[in-house]
Computed example of a mutant assay.
Amino acid sequence: MKFKSIVLTVTLAATLLAGCGSKPAENKPAETTPSPTQAAEPTKTADVVTTASIVDNADAFVKAISKDGTWIIATLNDLKIDQELVLDGEFKNGKKDANGNDAIQRKIGLYTQDDDHNVTARFTLTAPKLTINSPEARIQSGTFVGDVYVAAKNFQLVDAKIEGNLYFTTEEAQSTFKMDDKSSVTGVKELKK
């Protein structure tokens, strides 16, 4: 039985490697958070490689949100992190904006989804503080427990909840903040320089 498992694993790995090596680069980037059943392969464009970091532990999450991380960070379960977190760096998502420039975006996806993009599970991220330094960032479809400090423009909550306070460190961060009607903040939303 063990031998069959090993042979199956090696065969599957060889098939995946052969398939990945012979596939031409795709021109359409990933637009949503991958489901756990979807591969976390980079989606390629002519000059940009975008990837999703699918994480299930604190160390991987902290690395993924760093300036050396990825533009999208998708969790697979609830995470409790006992340190202050910083979403840092400017990332391109592989798309073009209305002017034909590379689109900047950063997303913390606290959910999984099926192949039809329906949310199948929502997760909670708990930390004492989360600082948003990445422009065009969002928290989507889950809950952050702790205080959020926004220093970058165009931060969004999309189908997400903050159980804590939402502080803006600049007037621009405050004036460009958006949240949809499915989102909420249980604490204050205020400018705190």
Score class of each variant (00 low, 15 high):
Ile65Arg: 01
Asp115Ser: 15
Thr15Gln: 07
Pro36Glu: 06
Ala137Asp: 03
Ala40Gln: 14
Asn154Pro: 06
Ser141Gln: 10
Ala137Met: 05
Gly21Arg: 01
Ala60Asp: 14
Lys28Ile: 14
Asp97Tyr: 05
Leu87Ile: 11
Val148Tyr: 06
Glu90Lys: 01
Thr15Tyr: 08
Thr126Ala: 05
Lys2Ile: 14
Thr124Cys: 07
Glu171Lys: 13
Asp59His: 09
Asp116Cys: 12
Ala30Glu: 03
Asn57Trp: 04
Pro29Val: 04
Asp159Met: 07
Thr176Gly: 03
Asp180Pro: 09
Lys95Arg: 09
Val48Tyr: 12
Thr33Trp: 15
Lys189Arg: 06
Asp97Met: 04
Asn99Gly: 10
Leu87Asn: 12
Ile65Ala: 05
Asp102Tyr: 09
Asp102Leu: 12
Arg106Gln: 12
Lys192Val: 03
Asp97Ile: 04
Ala64Phe: 01
Thr126Asn: 01
Ala64Val: 02
Met179Asp: 05
Lys95Val: 02
Asn133Tyr: 04
Glu163Arg: 03
Pro29Arg: 01
Leu79Pro: 03
Ala30Cys: 11
Gly187Trp: 02
Asp82Ile: 00
Leu166Arg: 01
Pro36Arg: 04
Asp147Glu: 04
Ile65Phe: 01
Glu31Pro: 09
Ala127His: 00
Ile54Phe: 05
Ala121Asp: 14
Met1Lys: 11
Asn165Gly: 11
Ser53Gln: 03
Ser5Tyr: 05
Lys4Glu: 11
Arg106Gly: 13
Asp116Asn: 15
Cys20Phe: 07
Gly142Ile: 01
Ser35Tyr: 10
Gly164Ser: 08
Thr45Pro: 14
Met179Lys: 00
Lys80Arg: 00
Gln38Glu: 15
Lys107Asp: 10
Val188Tyr: 09
Lys63Phe: 12
Val86Ala: 08
Phe168Ala: 00
Gln38Pro: 10
Ala152Phe: 05
Ser53Lys: 03
Pro34Ser: 02
Ile108Asp: 13
Ala98Cys: 08
Ile72Arg: 15
Leu157Gly: 06
Gly187Tyr: 00
Ala25Pro: 10
Phe3Ser: 11
Glu171Tyr: 03
Glu172Asn: 08
Thr32Ser: 15
Ser141Ala: 13
Ser22Cys: 12
Glu84Ile: 08
Gly164Arg: 00
Asp88Cys: 09
Val158Asp: 08
Asp78Tyr: 04
Lys92Thr: 12
Ser22Ala: 13
Ser53Pro: 07
Asp47Gln: 12
Leu12Gly: 12
Pro24Met: 09
Asp180Met: 04
Val185Pro: 09
Ile54Glu: 04
Asn99Thr: 09
Asp147Ile: 02
Lys182Met: 05
Lys182Gln: 10
Leu12Ser: 12
Thr186Ser: 13
Lys189Asp: 02
Ala13Arg: 01
Lys67Arg: 07
Pro24Thr: 08
Lys178Tyr: 01
Arg106His: 13
Phe155Ser: 02
Thr43Ala: 10
Ala160Ile: 02
Met1Asn: 11
Leu157Cys: 08
Thr11Gln: 08
Ile139Tyr: 03
Asp47Ile: 06
Ser184Lys: 06
Thr32Ala: 15
Thr51Leu: 10
Ala18Phe: 07
Val158Ser: 08
Val119Leu: 13
Ile162Ala: 07
Thr112Pro: 13
Asp56Ala: 15
Lys44Cys: 15
Glu84Asp: 15
Leu16Ala: 15
Thr33Asn: 15
